[in-house]
Amino acid sequence: MKKDLIDIIMEKEFHALSQAEREELASYCSNEDEYNQMRDVFIGVEQMTWDHPQPKAETKQRLDDLFDSTYPKAAPVWYNSVLAVVVPNEKPLHRQPLAQIAAVALIAFLTIPFFGSDSEITEKPAASQQLAQVEKPATTPSSDVKADPENEVKNEEPIVEEDPITRSNDVPVLVASAEPMPGAPSVGATSAGSSGHPDGVFIAVSQPASEAPEMFDLLTATF
């Protein structure tokens, strides 16, 4: 903070004043005697101890009442008292019970999975068996469909679909064609004549082109 003229007068003797300070003071005191007289007054007043009387307690009480009436507090309800205990306003966040409980819960949530990891491994096979049991009924043909003669042809096909090899590598795609393809693999495929299908639909299971190079050549030539 910049010192004002009075501070300079109280701090410095007349001979210690700079030229700029003397010029500033020139309009207020013309010579050294006047300067010293003024300085004595300032220092004398500064040394005097001034009592700062304190207002009466009643004045503060009246103001407190006025403050309470001007800014009324919320009506006390049951959760306010609970909140006052769990989230006390006077304490910083890290010392509030709610924050401490949340911190313990978080630590527990993060550490418990590491304790239960062994039992999870042993339980895995059982879980996969259950999954297989759930899947099987969906793949096996239902007894209700057997009555339909058209479905009998289709009922023969699921044998191919259930092949574990093809199932594990790629999902088989059923391809419908009017004639049997010359380079098509014979595995699981039935010709229209041999199947005896009335529409002459040829149903074959496609395989990846990498497993049948001649099929790949054929596709390249076609497109």
Binding site: D51, H52, P53, Q54, P55, L63
Partner: peptide, 11 residues
């Protein structure tokens, strides 16, 4: 605020 200024203001 009251604590800071009530005394000086009374004076």
């Amino acid at each position: 605020i009251y604590h800071r200024y009530s005394g000086p203001l009374l004076g």
